[in-house]
Design a binder for these strands. Sequence first.
DNA 1: AGCAAATCGAACCGAGTGGTTCGAAATATT
DNA 2: AATATTTCGAACCACTCGGTTCGATTTGCT
Lengths: 232, 232
Amino acid sequence: MVDTTADSDLLDLRKGRPAAGQDPVKRAQIIEGARRVFIDKGFEAASMNDITREAGVSKGTIYVYFENKEELFEALIEEERGTIFKNMYEVLDHFEDLRKTLVKFGTGLSIKITSAKVIQAQRTVVGAADRIPELGARFYERGPKRGHDKVVSFLNEAIARGLLEIPDVDLGAYQFTELCLAGLFRQCIFSYRTKAPSQAEIEKIVTSGVDVFLKAYGTEKFFAEERASASA
Amino acid sequence: MVDTTADSDLLDLRKGRPAAGQDPVKRAQIIEGARRVFIDKGFEAASMNDITREAGVSKGTIYVYFENKEELFEALIEEERGTIFKNMYEVLDHFEDLRKTLVKFGTGLSIKITSAKVIQAQRTVVGAADRIPELGARFYERGPKRGHDKVVSFLNEAIARGLLEIPDVDLGAYQFTELCLAGLFRQCIFSYRTKAPSQAEIEKIVTSGVDVFLKAYGTEKFFAEERASASA
DNA sequence: AGCAAATCGAACCGAGTGGTTCGAAATATT
DNA sequence: AATATTTCGAACCACTCGGTTCGATTTGCT
């Protein structure tokens, strides 16, 4: 709307002081304040004044960096999504022992998804999803959905190696993920659980989940190999 | 606070006109308006004036029936929970064919949980769970948790009959439920899916989920009986 | 030091907030 | 018809909302 940079839209080569609304440090500062407010109050209850206070930045400045409340919220969620799902799937990149890999991935996933911070963030997104459906969809698409795709291709690799036999790989991937969570997500997001599950509990759940999954989809070859390496 | 019934706190035997704030019809009317507003705006964004308008009841009257906004919201959620989980578990009461019963129950559960109306209601609860954790906890406890307990006792019966072998029945029940949903809940609640899944899709998922579950936990006896009845 | 620009801070806008109050109107019992 | 009481409807309270504006201040470069 307001062209703060005058007629300099051709090229901006200023190296020193960042242009208005372009300083990444200040931007981060604003988002950090927004994070605290949005995540513990939700979209509606959060006020721009709260964020102003929490970020230690004047209201006018915030509006230089972000068009309005909704855009600021979206920027925050986008960032949250990025940090939440970062490094979550790389354990699937190098195919080694099937069972161990599944357990390792499932444990990491389960710990992340049910951690207090992440649950709060997800609640915020869910709460806003009714008013801004695209936001929730984008969050899912670039977060959980991407992970799901990684699981699918991992399972496909296992199938190619003759270790698994899955009629519907896409469905199988969902089943695997859900088995690793086994109710934890719902319990956490409804705040039936007020604390994140312990490492021990998660390990128990994931181990059992992988067990069920492999009993259902593991091939003879897989079990034979496992027996062989166990007696070695 | 305000004693509208004067000094009649000993006994109120008036049979005709209901006492102030006691007419169940008017109460239902208020809650119906509250439902529409709360569920499509969320707790924070909903205003008492919206509800006044939607319910066709004056603001003063609402405050006769409910102490404040939060109490009205809780009353609504309590009712929603009741209608959502009504009649959902009775299919587990009469033990007949194991696989068929599991499929039937899983299908019903999956359809309910992912229906547009119920998803909206759940989103509202989740969104509010950050500010009113007890509300979310109560919702889960008297809804999903009760269903979980029913599943547990059903599985125990199946174990007693020698059809299943489950090391941790509680965990097994969670696994079963999650297998029946297989990602649908998360997709719906994040509004990644904007429409409820089709009957066909749910049946496919549930059938496969039950399959996985039985492959993991079904006993020799169970499979023998199933083969026998199949060739009959 | 001088200068240009980004940030601050506070005021302002109209609208709406939950909650409360109270006389007028509607209602059902007697 | 008279009576008792619930409900209505509108006004009011002090406050906050998101958003905008603008002069004063600070900042960092030349």
